[in-house]
Design a protein around this nucleic acid. Structure first.
Length: 423
RNA sequence: GGUGGCGUGUCUGAGUGGCCUAAAGAGCACGUCUCGAAAGCGUGUGUUGGGGAGACUCAACCGUGGGUUCAAAUCCCACCGCCACCGCCA
């Protein structure tokens, strides 16, 4: 949630942010009115309550007729307090509900527009020249085909057992996951991250606090019988880790390894082949709690760690600055890294890093000590490696004409081989 | 899954309807003493929200949510969590 003080003092800034995001602008003025009503209701209630507290005390001290008289007026006052209290509660619920609808105040540096209006910040590496007439002299196979040749990916049996968008990683496919995870965790640990294996089954407060129920609710698996959610990213349990705490020792950097579950509602027909878009995958996610003044710098660091990973995998990629309409509720700015996928002749998102400033921390009530007060921390997240898409990128970019795949040097110590051979 | 016990501030822990403005101790901070420190002594010591330029003031918070009452940490109900034992189990 945003800072109510900013809303009161500079509502125009909030309206503008909502507008470039393509979100409701009217809600801003509704919230202003609801906030005013809320404060009035609080004042009314508290005045009555203070009166009641005094009166109650005198009832305790009084005796006889005096007590009877006091009791009568106390009873009357009690009824008034009850009414004022429920009016206050209603006003607070309404104001809070409206407050939760407003998205984080966008960075003025984020490009304005919808999904297609991203800005390319930089390119790294050069895509190989596949095709008979190209430098490589052979047509690139896609990861599904390579996965079959290597006996690394089995989407057919995945579909048999778990439906569409499911898969088995087998043999070198499974080993590749372990190697990627081990490489990711070991480099994150060297960079000062605390490795974490979080729960992937979380309760409603954790889910709501992270802002996933409003924005992306349709993509979240909900276990109705137990009222638990399956997380779509370990960002959720990592953010909620310090829920309702005043934390010390900032910045705190965590690298969470977990399975991620996504319903992928509304993506019919998109990426139906292969393992680019799946319901379940494993991911190493970086998550940072820091003082708000350090958030910008931490965001750049996250981006750098993500680039380091892609560089180590020797995969061509570009960095994009995601446009205002495609940011998600919590982020003020977001950078995606898109890896080159030869058979799609396109760059595809493999990692993403967001600066959420204090937005999530306010909802989750995570603070730090600043002098003699407490203030909400800033939170940031970034993908270190999302396994299936990284496997796709590695297989397709490092394939050879015989269907074998050269293993990037950084991964060799973790995989034990230089090359994946047809099985 | 069953039975029993427990949930109070940074911690330990008292408090079974009004004297709770939550005792006491520990911790922490500051002061005093000291060459310096410890011990001792003194003072202070939560969070959130409303009002106020501010000193300040008012309200809420004793696991969570309801209820009873003029008045609830205290009584009632539900839920959650923790501990112990039994059963089952990777």
């Amino acid at each position: 949630m945003i800072d109510l003080k900013i809303l009161r003092e500079d509502p125009e800034r909030v309206r503008l942010s909502q507008q470039v995001r393509g979100e409701s602008v009217e809600i801003v003025d509704q919230l202003l009115a609801l906030d005013e009503a809320r404060r009035t209701a609080i004042t009314t209630f508290e005045a009555l309550r203070a009166e009641q507290n005094l009166l109650s005390k005198s009832v305790g001290a009084a005796k006889g007729d005096e007590k009877t008289a006091l009791l009568a007026s106390a009873k009357e006052l009690s009824a008034k307090v009850k009414v004022a209290d429920s009016a206050r509660a209603e006003a607070e619920v309404a104001a809070n509900a409206a407050l939760l609808l407003i998205h984080n105040l966008i960075s003025p540096e984020a490009p304005v527009g919808s999904e297609a209006d991203f800005v390319v910040l930089e390119h790294f590496g050069t895509p190989r020249d596949f095709g008979i007439k190209g430098l490589e002299g052979f047509e690139a196979k896609d990861h599904v085909e390579l996965g079959k040749i290597l006996k690394a990916i089995d989407t057919e049996r995945g579909a048999k057992v778990s439906g569409s968008r499911s898969y088995y990683l087998t043999g070198v496919g499974a080993l590749l996951e372990f190697a990627l995870v081990n490489y990711a965790i070991s480099s994150a640990t060297k960079a000062g991250f605390i490795p974490v294996i979080p729960p992937v089954l979380v309760n409603p407060p954790a889910m709501e606090g992270t802002g996933f129920l409003g924005q992306a609710a349709e993509n979240v698996y909900h276990l109705e019988e137990d009222d638990y959610y399956l997380v779509g990213t370990s960002e959720v349990p990592l953010a909620a880790y310090h829920m309702d705490e005043v934390i010390e020792g900032l910045p705190l950097r965590y690298a969470g390894y977990s399975t991620c579950f996504r319903r992928e509602a509304g993506t019919y027909g998109k990426d139906t082949r292969g393992i680019i878009r799946v319901h379940q995958f494993d991911k190493v996610e970086m998550f940072i709690f820091c003082e708000p003044k350090d958030a910008l710098a931490e965001h750049q660091k996250l981006l750098q760690w993500e680039k380091d990973f892609l560089n180590a995998m020797e995969i061509p990629y570009r960095v994009i600055d995601v446009a205002s309409g495609d940011l998600g509720a919590s982020a003020i700015r977001k950078f995606d890294i898109e890896a080159w996928i030869p058979t799609q002749n396109a760059y595809r998102e493999v990692t993403s890093t967001s600066n959420c400033t204090e937005f999530q921390a306010r909802r989750l009530n995570i603070r730090y000590r600043d002098g003699d007060t407490t203030k909400p921390v800033a939170t940031l997240n970034g993908t270190l490696v999302a396994i299936p898409r990284m496997i796709v990128a590695i297989l397709e970019n490092h394939q050879q004409s015989d269907g074998s795949v050269v293993v990037p040097a950084a991964l060799r110590p973790f995989l034990g081989v230089d090359r994946l051979l047809p099985a």
